[in-house]
Design a protein around this nucleic acid. Structure first.
Lengths: 236, 236, 236, 236
DNA sequence: TATGAATGAGCCTTCATTCAT
DNA sequence: CATGAATGAAGGCTCATTCAT
């Protein structure tokens, strides 16, 4: 019967809807109270559903938060990977692209980023929560591979350790965003964000590119346009 | 980070001895199980003292952990401040000094550093635990001041935001150490640590110093002795 | 114990079919997991029906289990009563008949008997579940009446308490079956069952019949054969 | 210091006292509400202690109830074993002794016996609660061994199955006690108990002993004095 | 009828904190 | 000072029951 069909259609979307509502609520509470401060009751209330329904969609608290992490992380990682593994672009473009992905994520959903940065990335290392730490470390490893390839191609100073480069890039971006997340940076306007993003990637690149590359590149002079203050004659 | 000064000062007193034992135990458990996984019972067992004794020396769990943080942090901050506010040294020396302080702390007591980095710095922001976050942010602000002064003196590219510079330095060092703490870096020998420290400060400086300063400095060529591979003629 | 009379009567109706499916499933789960371990969800899954359907046919869990008990019990009790109140047969015949009814029930549906014996007969006495206990006790009372009548007729040693006789008979049969249900008896072949049944009723009768009655009977000497009744003209 | 000594002494008895209080309370609640109806909160309230204290002495609910079972059972089983394995006594004495142990236990602590009979012996067979069932079955096996030895010595009719004999004895005693526990027997005076005990063992023995043994024994005629009604000339 | 999503009370368990000795 | 028994609030999870479709 057509009724059945509509029912299943409804049910499908309905289910996803509910599940998604709960997930969103979990992200919010997670962001607000942190991993351990996040009570199922809070999530349920935030989502406007009954307590038990959470357990209808998620086996237990851990799976819920794991899903929050995975969901938030996965899209992010996918985009990062696309940038890092795009073999048509230079290392400079990739670094810029990575920073852009991170900052864009923050622009779109600062709350989720806060969760990712403050909770997931650095969550209690003890126990079965390995997945989270792992996700974060995997990201660094991916970047390390990227740098290793760049180094092989002479695009990275050869005395640098690719893994460490990756850590530094990630650490810079993360702490840069933390500066916003934590309120260290007072001006959180899109322009300020843009400026920060540029400073981060340019400073980083300056630090790790071979001198030859620095000379060749024009961004030292004019890329500044896209954010940092016009400091013409900076080097001349 | 792990101080022994207070210990040496009060080593004679029984009370301090016990107190210190508990504090050490707390750091260990804290490092092993994380903030929320750390139960008073664990600390007591680790310290080999009775359950209730912890409450003789610390008002409650929070104060205990606050003390762990404060103790570990204070000496560290003191030394950082000494470096950052020493007006006789250049910004390069300061940056190198800061990295050195951090890495030395890690060399002396990796466990404590792990706690500081993974738990205290990023502990649950929600609630009364502000102190910890604050401690971390204060450190960044201190570094920001340092950079601001350097910028005023023309030692830092003027288009850079000092606060962001501070964040990047701290983020780089922190993630660099995290790479060791988390096992990302397989070689944890003193030499590897030394090499990493050098790469971090040199890359950072390269990224933020004015071009003029880069040309003048000799470390680009020969500082490499202290860690990075001899890349003579790299730029010539 | 497991009735098929109601089934055959209403076999045509869809409703009854479903209802019966659920009832059977309940007996199975009940037998497998016990009273409290039996969840409605389990019953539904076992029956292959939707969760809520159980509530169409049974008001609640308790009614379901009550029905399981009643259904299983009622036919059993009916048959027992027929035996116990048949005034044309001797007490020996009645005792043999009772054991036969019980063992036949076990032969037909051991699972249901297990439920009846292990769960219903001894289910939590506390609360509204009185019905079950009651059913069991009523059976004993019925047997006690039987023995009282026999005693009045001189067929039972006069110093015996009829109620206690009833308890002993029921206890013997029940524990005898338990020995099979629980796996104490390794050989569960029809022959072994038959032998056990005979041993139970004959031992019991030996214990409670007047000596005179014992002398008359031949089974004391030759019944030893194997267990089954070659006791033609047993008493006549 | 002597203070320490007295302290530890106190502590020892104090601990046992509390633990015992909780155990007693558990038995009571267990007896009143059954295995699954027994909530920790009830036990704590009954014992007059705080909720959490129960967990100080018992790992969890299961261990508590397991201990209840073990404790109640162990003394009982020990005494039964002493009787069943005393090779200086005849099978008649042993059967009488077993019934006596059971009835004495009931006289001393009817509540505990109720628990043992109604809950432990027949508790939900599903799951990790095997121990209980096992304890009960072990008792039957012990009795079966006893009967097997008696049979080998010609003290038991040779056509009987020892295991079944054991089941019948245990079943008779159990249901006999159940008759009292459940209220089926209205007169619960010590004399009534005594009478019941005698009827049970004598009827049972009559049922299983060889005819020769029956003739030899005098108890058929005069043992009746110890409980059953004076039925002189019963057989003559 | 039939389905299974939704609800929420109930219960076990943990653990920070207090207190008597 | 030291001990560890005692307390009880908090929170995760289960599962009987209801309800909209």
């Amino acid at each position: 019967m057509s009724q059945r069909q509509s029912k299943s259609e409804e049910a499908g979307s309905r289910e996803s809807e509910r599940r998604h509502t709960i997930l969103r609520a979990a992200i919010d509470v997670f962001a607000r109270k942190g991993y351990h401060g996040c009570r199922i009751a809070d999530v349920a209330r935030e989502a406007g559903v009954a307590y038990g329904l959470v357990y209808h969609y998620f086996k237990n608290k851990d799976e819920l938060l794991e899903t929050v992490a995975a969901t938030g992380w996965s899209g992010f990682v996918t985009r990062l990977r696309a940038v890092a593994e795009d073999e048509t672009s230079s290392i400079e473009q990739k670094v810029h692209g990575i920073a852009e992905v991170a900052f864009e994520a923050y622009r779109v959903d600062p709350r989720a980023v806060k969760v990712l940065i403050l909770e997931i990335a650095r969550s209690p290392s003890g126990g079965h929560v390995v997945t989270r730490q792992q996700a974060f470390l995997d990201t660094i490893r991916m970047a390390a591979d990227m740098f290793a390839r760049a180094q092989a191609a002479g695009q990275l100073r050869e005395e640098l350790d690719p893994m460490l480069c990756a850590s530094l890039l990630v650490g810079s971006i993360e702490m840069g965003l933390t500066a916003f997340v934590s309120g260290l940076m007072e001006d959180r306007s899109p322009e300020a964000l843009e400026r920060a993003r540029t400073q981060i990637s340019e400073s980083f690149l300056r630090g790790v590119l071979p001198n030859a590359a620095l000379q060749e590149t024009s961004w030292k002079q004019d890329k500044t346009s896209s954010g940092t203050r016009p400091k013409a004659g900076k080097r001349a």
